[in-house]
Amino acid sequence: MDIYFNVHLLSDSTGETLNAVMRAACAQFEDVSPLEHNYYLVRSQRQLDRALREIEGAPGIVLYTISDEGLRKTLEDWCSLTHTPVLPVIDPAVDVLSRYLGLRSNRSVAGQYKVDSSYFTRIEALNYTLAHDDGQSVEDLGDADVALVGVSRTSKTPTCVYLGNRGIKAANVPLVPGVDPPEILMGPNSPLVIALKISPKRLVDIRRQRLISIKEDPNTAYASEEAVREEITWANRLFARMKWKTIDVSRRSVEETAAAILNTISESGRN
């Protein structure tokens, strides 16, 4: 039986760090289902007061990333008074860096989101990725940091978008049985190509669920076991012939697939 509990996430920024930490921590426990209460861009006393009223009405754990010393003290004092468990999630990492570097943190709000050259690099990469989704604009695939190839429904698009947000120009090239990939991917001047593999059973399940979600008949050749097996066999032979690096996405999340791709890019020395 699942254990439900309230977890309140307070951030003076977007809350991405809090969500990632909370979910990673909860993943270490079985049958645990956190009830998330999110308070983003908390930068004033009025905003904090509203969050505290809601926490009082639904007691639980408080995780926060707030830089303003006054707001931090108010939150910490309130949690101490009400015996509410509270954790400033990035403080341990900041403290370690401060001791190691011999520097004092400037506690900047949303410092990781400042508009600088790295920000514009990410925007450029995202624009490239969106323009090269699903086999578009093959004429300039040579500009890609990585080209992901694979049969339909192997999570190429979400993986490319994730990579784009990390500043990687990722192109998504779908494979159709019997049709050769774009020539640029098969020549000596090709970008780094990574092939996404998947088990037939997993792909059948994904395709059938997709057809059901759009109210189409799941009993078609697109999702039939025999057709899928033939399609995957053809793709795997192509991967072997081209000697492309492969990643099995059968049981990987998009984040795990992207992490493996980032490792491959780093090892290749192309980025």
Score class of each variant (00 low, 15 high):
D77V: 06
A223T: 04
R241T: 12
E256A: 10
E54P: 01
S190R: 15
E30Y: 06
T159C: 07
A131V: 04
T17S: 13
N236V: 03
V151L: 15
S152T: 12
A258N: 04
N106E: 15
V151M: 08
D143A: 13
Q209L: 11
G269K: 05
K73S: 12
G102R: 03
D134A: 07
C79F: 07
N172Y: 05
R210P: 03
E226G: 00
T154Q: 01
E256R: 03
I3S: 08
R107Q: 12
I247D: 10
L63N: 00
E30P: 08
I232C: 05
G167D: 07
I123Y: 03
I61W: 09
D145E: 06
D143K: 15
G135P: 02
V228L: 03
I3G: 00
R43L: 10
K201T: 13
T257V: 11
L103V: 12
M1L: 10
G187A: 09
M1E: 13
M186D: 01
A235G: 01
L148K: 02
W244D: 06
V94I: 15
Y222V: 05
G187K: 12
D140A: 02
Y162G: 01
N189R: 14
D12K: 10
A171C: 08
P177D: 05
E36Q: 11
L71H: 05
G150L: 12
N38P: 01
A51K: 04
R43E: 14
A51C: 10
A125D: 07
A223E: 01
Q45M: 07
A227E: 15
A58R: 10
N165Q: 13
V151C: 13
D77L: 12
V151R: 00
N172H: 07
G111A: 14
P85C: 10
W244S: 07
V109F: 01
F29T: 03
N127A: 12
K215R: 14
S213L: 05
E16Q: 04
R210I: 06
P182R: 10
V228A: 00
I232L: 15
L163T: 11
V146G: 05
S108T: 09
H37M: 06
D145T: 02
T159E: 06
W244K: 12
Y4K: 15
R153W: 11
E124C: 08
P85F: 03
D248L: 13
V138F: 02
